[in-house]
Amino acid sequence: MYAVTGGRTAPRGGLAVEALVSSATSMRLGMTYTREYRAISELCRQVRSVAEVSALLRVPLGVARVLIADMESEGLVRVYQPQLEAGVPDKSLLERVLSGLRRL
């Protein structure tokens, strides 16, 4: 994974683990892109969180964050960051997450 991210362990910009990611193109990425880019693009045909992408690809969260941020800068994916008010997460979001965890 070190080679895939160029040794980086964190994205250049802020990327929350709960940020949602979707593929920016309906076409499959060609062989000019890395295997990881192609896999992320395919996974994100459905909107997924950064944490989900990491888990589904079985790569460390830091690696997923770096790859997704790089893909966003190349226009390959769209990232929807959570809206924070004064640095505090939305209370309804936290309640939904807690509810989902309880159902597990």
Rank of each mutant, 00 (worst) to 15 (best):
A3K: 11
E74C: 13
G13E: 07
S73P: 01
S23T: 07
S41V: 14
E36F: 08
A51G: 03
L20I: 06
Q83R: 15
Y37S: 05
S26T: 09
L94F: 12
S54T: 02
A55D: 03
S54H: 00
V21R: 01
Q46D: 09
E85C: 11
D70T: 05
E95F: 13
R78Y: 09
C44R: 01
V97G: 04
G7V: 06
V79S: 01
T9F: 01
E42V: 13
E18R: 14
P60L: 09
T32M: 14
T9D: 00
G14P: 04
S22W: 02
D70S: 09
V4S: 10
G14S: 13
V17D: 02
R28Q: 14
R103T: 12
V4E: 11
R48T: 08
L56F: 14
L29K: 06
S73W: 15
V47A: 11
T9G: 03
P11I: 04
Q46N: 07
C44G: 07
R103C: 11
S73I: 12
R45C: 04
R102Q: 14
G87D: 12
L43E: 00
E42Q: 15
L56E: 10
E95G: 08
V50T: 06
E85I: 15
R58F: 08
G14D: 06
R96I: 11
Q81H: 12
R38K: 10
A39E: 08
E72N: 09
A16P: 02
R8F: 03
R28L: 15
V66K: 00
R65W: 03
K91R: 15
P11R: 02
T9Y: 03
E52Y: 05
T9K: 08
T32P: 00
A3F: 12
V53I: 13
P89V: 10
V97R: 10
R65P: 00
R102C: 14
G100P: 02
R102S: 14
G7F: 10
D70E: 14
L101I: 13
A64L: 04
T25L: 13
Q81K: 08
A16M: 08
V77K: 01
V47S: 07
E42K: 13
M27A: 13
G100A: 15
Y37M: 09
R58W: 07
V4W: 02
L84I: 07
R78P: 02
G75S: 07
M31N: 10
V21I: 10
L94C: 08
M71H: 05
L84V: 07
R8L: 09
R103D: 13
S49M: 15
R8Y: 01
G6M: 05
L94S: 11
A55M: 09
V50K: 00
A3W: 06
P82Q: 04
A16T: 04
R58N: 05
G75L: 12
V17R: 04
D90W: 13
S49D: 07
G13A: 13
S23F: 03
R45N: 04
V17W: 02
R12N: 08
L20D: 02
S54N: 01
G30F: 09
G7P: 03
T34V: 10
D90C: 13
L15D: 01
G14A: 10
M1F: 09
A39L: 08
L61C: 06
G14I: 11
Q81C: 09
R45F: 09
V50F: 01
L67I: 08
E18W: 07
L43K: 03
G87P: 02
V66S: 00
A10S: 10
L98Y: 12
S22C: 06
V77S: 02
Q46Y: 09
G30K: 06
